[in-house]
């Protein structure tokens, strides 16, 4: 079973040379720490920066330079700032190559829910609806089950949707899964996790074909 850093480490392998990448809040943010340093990648934050760098050193924080999680950040050589309409133009116009975001639920048809729990939590969708509606390459980073132990990979989402039919790949603490027209397809197992464990933790249709390799991280 992977921890959050393990999930981020596995997803980092999906980041290719020359990619512009948007990282969501939570586990996705950690992906930046594990991207190979021999490839060229630029991180976009939808509040208006491309070429995001690490957190600033103590005392060097600038209130005017933050990421979409409202954390103080730095920029790397080649970085640029822009307004919100331009930022979402990059996203809507499919100039961003990869979007990595968290989810509360994903359905076997690629639907995703991550912005609202009726009666409990309504923080808003932020940029998530724009991201999932436009991006062609979306990876969801999340735990396989919720705190109550219930599967987050469902036949149909029960929570209000963020987007329809948009998720292509899911990396959880247990598995790497592809979303296909026939349902979830198991691609890889996390170290120490059996196919049976994954089947048991997945409510939606799970296709298991042949030997399922262990993740190489």
């Amino acid at each position: 079973m992977l921890d959050k850093n393990g999930i981020a480490k596995r997803i980092a392998k999906e980041v290719k040379d020359g990619y512009y990448v948007n990282l969501g809040i939570g586990i996705p943010t950690l992906v930046a720490n594990f991207v190979r340093d021999d490839i060229s990648v630029e991180f976009q934050s939808e509040n208006g920066v491309l070429g995001m760098g690490p957190f600033p050193f103590e005392g060097e924080e600038d209130a005017d330079i933050i990421n979409a999680g409202k954390q103080t950040i730095t920029t790397l050589p080649g970085a640029s700032f822009f307004d919100s309409a331009t930022s979402f133009g990059m996203i809507r116009g499919k100039h961003v190559d990869l979007t990595i975001l968290g989810a509360m639920e994903v359905a076997e048809n690629g639907d995703i829910a991550n912005w609202k729990i009726p009666g409990k939590m309504v923080k808003g969708m932020g940029g998530a609806m724009d991201l999932v509606a436009s991006a062609e390459n979306i990876i969801v980073a999340m735990m396989h089950t919720n705190r109550a132990g219930e599967s987050k990979l469902l036949k149909r989402c029960t929570l209000p949707l963020t987007g329809v039919g948009c998720v292509k790949k899911i990396v959880t603490n247990m598995a790497v899964i592809e979303v296909t027209s026939e349902g979830f397809k198991l691609l890889e197992r996390a170290p120490g996790v059996s196919v049976q464990d994954i089947v048991g933790a997945t409510e939606g249709t799970l296709l298991v074909e042949g030997e399922i390799p262990e993740m190489n991280i």
């Binding site: 309409a85 930022s87 979402f88 940029g127 609806m129 724009d130 509606a133 436009s134 987007g163 329809v164």
Partner: peptide, 26 residues
Amino acid sequence: PQGTLAEKCRAAQAGFPAFYTPAGYG
């Protein structure tokens, strides 16, 4: 949605009465 919010401002600035966006469909 954040991109829609930004574009609804920009549309008002640029004289567009409305626009189509994929965000939030469904």
